[in-house]
């Protein structure tokens, strides 16, 4: 296994612990008396769809890289990154909607958890976008597909992981 890939897997293990603990804290806190479930903004649905598209884009790039097709890598990377930015913008918009309705972080623990969870998830995606930016820049400077293959694959793995995390968190927010 490439060293960087193992590095990423170990890192994903650490991130998994972070989010698991957050979920554990959430499920404990919601049993206390003052918990008022939060009406999830409808925007989260399109946002989730956009994040899925983002993951699909990077998977596209990964497959194209494996087949040695630079045009496919380009399309996939740009689509994946573009959708990721769109997702982050959408999340900020969702925050704005909530705040406009008076759901501030301090008004209820459910709100506080919502902001915390979405913020941490967004920050992780932002970190992923740094790696994505470096890969895209490398592609722009005219790197061969073979040189890009590993970077693209790692981005895709990270994206799928964050998508999975989001689906779990979104489910948790929806059903509680």
């Amino acid at each position: 296994m490439p060293t960087v890939k193992l590095g990423l897997i170990v890192f994903l293990a650490v991130v998994t612990v972070v989010f698991s603990l957050l979920v554990a804290a959430y499920t404990h806190r919601m049993t206390l008396a003052d918990w008022r479930p939060l009406p999830e903004p409808w925007l989260l649905w399109p946002n989730t769809a956009i994040l899925i598209l983002s993951s699909v884009g990077l998977q596209w790039a990964r497959v194209a890289a494996n087949r040695g097709r630079i045009d496919g890598v380009r399309v996939g990377l740009l689509a994946g990154g573009g959708f990721a930015f769109a997702f982050l913008a959408g999340q900020l918009l969702a925050w704005q909607q909530l705040a406009a309705l008076g759901y501030f972080a301090a008004t209820n623990p459910a709100n506080a958890f919502f902001y915390l969870i979405t913020a941490l998830h967004g920050l992780h995606l932002l970190g992923g976008l740094v790696a994505w930016g470096r890969t895209t820049a490398k592609m722009w400077r005219g790197s061969e597909v073979a040189e890009l293959r590993l970077s693209v694959e790692l981005c895709a793995v990270y994206w799928h992981f964050l998508l999975l995390v989001w689906l779990v968190l979104f489910g948790l927010l929806l059903f509680t």
Binding site: V14, V17, L22, A112
Partner: peptide, 20 residues
């Protein structure tokens, strides 16, 4: 990570007056 989560939540309690 447990300390990290705890520290971030307490930071929010201190700064934003959330009630984790």
């Amino acid at each position: 990570p447990a300390l990290f989560v705890g520290a971030v939540m307490m930071l929010l309690d201190r700064i934003l007056e959330t009630s984790f």
